[in-house]
Nucleic acid binder design. Structure first.
Ligand SMILES: [Mn+2]
Ligand SMILES: [Mn+2]
Ligand SMILES: [Mn+2]
Ligand SMILES: [Mn+2]
Lengths: 218, 218
DNA sequence: ATTAATATTTAGACAAATCTAAATATTTGT
DNA sequence: ACAAATATTTAGATTTGTCTAAATATTAAT
């Protein structure tokens, strides 16, 4: 598989939302930042190679084999992202571009050794699950912090309210995107939460919780 | 610079023996496992881009700028090799092929963070020196262990005598290719050596030393 | 100093990945 | 159901990196 073919396979995979849905030529073109005509050519090639099912004007989805290729790429991409954050102190939002390159390195031994070095992580710095060597993984969903049950652990991936006061609050309480948050307790009376972030316990109001997105794998 | 261009630049660099000597079209073709006609085309392109000086029928060498590019690639290649051995427990002879891919990853921050993670290593697992961020490095020479002065440290890179008894001796004494050897003391009387390998001190005869190649940076 | 051998370049072709412009198919709105 | 809008494919061109075969230059040998 060439680098380009691999990126197209990943695009089809991601656009299919992990469900291997059929995706359109234009969708792929937008994702890949190429023209629809280029996509058509590539879809024919991927079909030839047996990694995609493409029907003229009808769209494209991955074959069983194509799905395996996609999952291997996703696995490598996310493992490298963990590596960059955990071992090289990259920030949450600096890793994607480099991982986009590293995911194409061909060495099964490298991937598996990296997995081991990192302690077989389950999720990447964006809270997305990392497929295991044989392609299994849990799906991630994004939920507001006030909607998850006590005991849930997830990655902080966004805010609903992006006003200055709210962001200032998060900063003051050392809550940042990419942090792992564990819900310890929920107060019946006012819906306030007792959570753990970066090893520290803090309490937050229902209002705060209602504006923080968590990515959780179930 | 494309991946292909980068590999050609490295080829010119290595064939020039670090001296930026002029190298011939056929030499480059052999090194790159391509045909001379392909090399001619690429040399024209590299000249256009200002990284090489090419004169028809006369050969090619790197420009100042090309040399910088080459040294950056060598730096990345060797840092990745150290990473693979030190952090992922790859064997001495498994790293080159993967490093050949990893050296093309474009991220200065990645390279420098990796350097730091590894503790700013001076040599790669083959005993070859690693250029610093600004392109400086010492040259390596290969010498027989019995020819280096006391106090010298180097990487074991080969044997002169490859007979079974000799290899068995090395195995018994836990000396392997890729090991760092430090010469602690030399016995005047018989030329026998007191050396340190993998933290252990051992004594070896002049005959043994005369059949072990060490790569040292001066 | 010719000739033979070797090295190098040129010419022309090809596959991969992309593009633009034109043609065709599908979908949507009335 | 038809026209208009949108989506998709086809045709033809371009760039990059490669190749083979033929032409030319350099070097070595007599
Ligand atoms: Mn990513
Ligand atoms: Mn990629
Ligand atoms: Mn190497
Ligand atoms: Mn390479």
């Amino acid at each position: 598989m060439t680098l380009s073919e691999e990126d197209y396979i990943k695009a089809i995979y991601h656009l299919g939302k992990g469900e291997n849905n059929i995706v359109s030529t234009n969708e792929v073109a937008e994702q890949m930042k190429t023209k629809p005509s280029s996509v058509t050519d590539m879809m024919k090639k991927l079909s030839e190679k047996g990694v995609a099912n493409y029907r003229k004007y009808k769209g494209v989805c991955l074959t069983e084999h194509g799905l395996k290729v996609a999952l291997t790429l996703v696995r490598k991409h996310r493992l490298w992202e963990v590596f960059l954050v955990e071992k090289l102190n990259f920030a949450w939002d600096e890793v994607h571009e480099v991982a986009e390159q590293l995911e194409h390195i061909k060495s099964e031994k490298l991937t598996d050794s990296l997995d081991k070095l990192l302690g077989f992580p389950q999720v990447d710095p964006h809270g997305d699950p990392i497929p295991s060597k044989n392609g299994e993984f849990k799906k991630a969903v994004k939920k507001l912090l006030n909607e998850v049950p006590v005991g849930t652990s997830g990655t902080c991936v966004g805010v609903k309210d992006s006003s200055a006061p709210f962001l200032k609050f998060l900063d003051k309480n050392r809550i940042a995107l990419g942090d792992t948050i564990l819900v310890l307790e929920k107060e019946e009376f006012d819906g306030s939460l007792h959570i753990q972030v970066k090893g520290k316990d803090i309490r937050i109001s229902d209002q705060i919780a209602a504006n923080l997105y968590l990515k959780i794998t179930e």
